[in-house]
Design a protein around this nucleic acid. Sequence first.
RNA 1: GGCGCAUUCGUCUAGCGGCCUAGGACGCUACCCUCUCAAGGUAGAGACCACGGGUUCGAAUCCCGUAUGCGCUACCA
Length: 489
Amino acid sequence: MSNVRVRFAPSPTGKPHTGNIRTAVFDWLFARHNGGKMILRIEDTDRERLDPTAAEEMIRALKWVGIDWDEGPDIGGPHAPYLQSDRRETHLEYANELIKSGNAYRCYCTRERLEQLRKTQEERGLPTGYDRRCRYLPPEERARYEESGATYTIRLAMPREGTVTWNDAVFGDMSWEYRLVDDQVIVKSDGFALYHLAATVDDHLMEITHVIRGEEWLSSTPKHIFIYHSLGWTPPTFVHTTHILGPGRRKLSKREASSEFMNFAAEGYLPEAVLNFVSLIGWTPGDDRELLSPHELIESFSLEGLVGHPAILDEEKLLWYNGQYIRSLSLPELAKRALPFLIKSGLVEQNPSPEKLNYLASVIALEQERIKTLADVASVADFFLLDDDKYEFDVKAVAKWFNAAGVGERLAWVREKLAALSLFNAETIEQVIRLGIEKFSVKPGEVIHPVRVAVSGRTVGPGLYELIDVLGRDRSLRRLDRALTLVSK
RNA sequence: GGCGCAUUCGUCUAGCGGCCUAGGACGCUACCCUCUCAAGGUAGAGACCACGGGUUCGAAUCCCGUAUGCGCUACCA
């Protein structure tokens, strides 16, 4: 399949949804796996729901997660335009062709009549749908409508009998009775084509070979196939992907942070982790691998691995992925990515000096295996960045370690020894602590823990010797002094 | 209501008739490592394969029914 062409066709009606992006990911992996083309098309035919910033945000989200495309509204391509509203004339052209061949017709019914119709159908427990009044309009009545200049929509004249079949790449052999399919409106009274027509025409004209889209489209595929056939075209392969659900197997609601895709970026997730995670929701490489680089994802991707049932997005697992990727990052890279989060939390100034950047790197080196998101750096390493008289002491930590007998004496002793050290590094610091343990004949923890609380304010964190080393002698001594004032005499 | 799709550990999934007394991962528990927290390592608990019928020498795997969930049923996508 070297001529594979797939398209991701979002409608710009709001913030990018995780489900949308996952579909884009599948498109992209499939295109790249086959050496085909990835096309971005913006389906903005719904002028009422249009959100002017949505397309940009979509592009930003796609780029963030690492997806690129070969043709699109931003870069053009051989099948331009890629903004669906710019293709209006083309859609109309084919709508008229459908009318000419008797596969579509103008419908003059008012919205009011349609609403009334639906209401009675619902009341009587009948299947809802258009009653095809205008399809069988007497010629003279039709002429009257035309002369009066009445507005109209264009509807598909669906076959009243027969069955349509196709092979869905995910769900396998599908078959549908045509008589159950409604005479769908394909052109609105405002002259814009509806999805069914627009997408079908564009997909064909853009030579799309595989239509990868959400399973909500499964039920309308018969309409699309009917359009393809009516126009004498060959339908593409349909690939209907199942939905991503929220906790409780409910639809991923806007309430869930994970539904809005770029929240992942804001929360400090790495794009490569998100890509890996999202790829594995509803798709499996077929083996036991969990950690796959973008390259490996592309290499392993196949339609056969697509799963036929919806999946719940498990944020705990995403967190694990993120931790894995954070630990695999080089130090400079991690520092670079964490910096914006530090700045945002006010721990680091806007344009830090090279010295500060250096210090940051050594801090992050100590915390790398302790964080799961970039945002965690701020909470876990704040004491490194706060002034020596500003970092906070954890109340419980103080209560536990500063009240024991002899703590003040040990802390003061350590303070003096550290001050006297000619060479100040993790190794010599450890020697001091060890010496203290021996001198006071106490358990290691009885020296180590109070010192840790003294210099960091808490009981958890990196190894004490490295911690003090990074903090530096002057700051450590100041902190020890500050802690001494808190120790019960 | 009609039509369609789905149903394996809490979660993501492997499985495409015998290799399954159902495998992996996240999470959970215990232990090891250790100055704490992590990370890492080891072990464990966790699924009567939704339920009921078939088909077959043999079914998680094929067929039918039921239940449940989801989707579609718009001049939204």
